[in-house]
């Protein structure tokens, strides 16, 4: 069964790595739904958040093949239940249409979105939230035919597990290296 998985990848900050990560999806003929790349909380380490529809068997293989790249530190996959995730979306609405439909501003308030710019031609509404909320705000506004443009970011996600896998991994690698060095000395 296909599920929307979120992949979180940590890598060294090396040019060309994004290519290598996405190529794994291409080779396995899996479409990437969204992709977000940014610096992580650890200096020099980049974080990729990728979503894709696929089977668990596929995502497991994808994760292993991404992790196989020598500059990738770690790759893990999550279902929506295992992460807290957010997106941001911007909606550009036609001001005359917006004013003519008082329900529209109620909808915006109900969705906890905010108007960030207004001029006589258009206004811009900003919303952050879960994917479905963002889609549903779009659909509700669109029924008035007033949406001129709609953009949404890729997903940013954080795992809800108590383990900080990356920190643990880095500590483990250092420890193993030091131990091997020590063993070598005594050999």
């Amino acid at each position: 069964m296909k599920t929307l998985y979120t992949l979180i990848v940590h890598s060294e900050n090396i040019a060309g790595l994004l290519n290598q990560v996405t190529a794994v999806f291409t080779r396995r003929q899996i479409n990437i739904e969204s992709l977000n790349v940014s610096a992580s909380s650890i200096k020099g380490i980049h974080k990729y958040t990728i979503t894709a529809w696929c089977t668990e068997d596929e995502i497991k293989k994808v994760v292993k093949q991404i992790e196989r790249k020598v500059d990738v530190l770690q790759a893990n996959y999550f279902t929506d239940a295992e992460i807290y995730q957010h997106e941001i979306a911007l909606y550009k609405l036609a001001t005359p249409g917006f004013q003519a439909n008082p329900v529209a501003s109620k909808i915006i308030r109900r969705h906890a979105a905010r108007v960030v710019e207004v001029n006589p031609t258009f206004c811009i509404v900003e919303k952050n939230g879960m994917s479905e909320e963002i889609t549903s705000l779009y659909e509700e506004l669109q029924q008035f035919g007033i949406v001129l443009q709609f953009v949404r970011s890729g997903r940013v996600a954080i795992s809800t597990s108590c383990f900080e896998r990356l920190n643990e991994y880095l500590a483990f690698r250092e420890e193993k290296y030091n131990k091997e060095k020590k063993d070598e000395k005594y050999d």
């Binding site: 890598s11 060294e12 020598v70 500059d71 990738v72 530190l73 880095l170 690698r173 193993k176």
Partner: peptide, 9 residues
């Protein structure tokens, strides 16, 4: 002799 992102052993 060490690449932290790649465990050779």
């Amino acid at each position: 002799d060490f690449v932290r992102s790649y465990d050779t052993n």
